[in-house]
């Protein structure tokens, strides 16, 4: 599971360079997220553009990534593909996360 981190003025962009966040990879994803969000402050946007599949273990790892943030940090999501979008809607976790259609536009349009 590779996470590519980009620092922008508005937020830290975390691009998931993998096609799945699922039972075999969820733990690794969660640990990578802990390490990545441990280094920076403020707003994080998780770009899921390349993630075509997520299961309940993967969903749990995304939720865990938010719960392990420190005060003052936030986690938002971007570019949910059809299966990922469906899993978030069915579990109503789409009501918990700010979700953007596109990560680059989210970073460009919302200066903090």
């Amino acid at each position: 599971m590779e996470l590519i981190v980009e620092h922008h003025a508005a937020a830290t962009l975390i691009r998931v360079n993998a096609t799945r966040i699922d039972a075999p990879t969820a733990l690794h994803f969660k640990e990578e997220m802990r390490s990545t969000t441990g280094k920076d402050e403020g707003r994080f946007i998780l770009d899921l553009q390349h993630v075509t599949f997520i299961d309940s273990s993967g969903l749990g790892a995304v939720v865990a990534s938010m719960k392990q943030l420190r005060p003052g940090q936030t986690l938002e999501l971007a570019a949910l593909q059809p299966i990922v979008d469906k899993v978030f809607r069915l579990t109503r976790m789409d009501t918990i996360f700010a979700i953007h259609a596109d990560a680059d536009r989210a970073v460009a349009s919302e200066k903090t």
Partner: peptide, 21 residues
């Protein structure tokens, strides 16, 4: 049964997803 979203449960979604679809 779906965990309430605001409880930020990390599990318990499997059978919900199956039964929903």
């Amino acid at each position: 049964h779906a965990p309430e979203p605001e409880t930020l449960s990390e599990g318990g979604y499997g059978w919900l997803l199956i039964r929903s679809l």
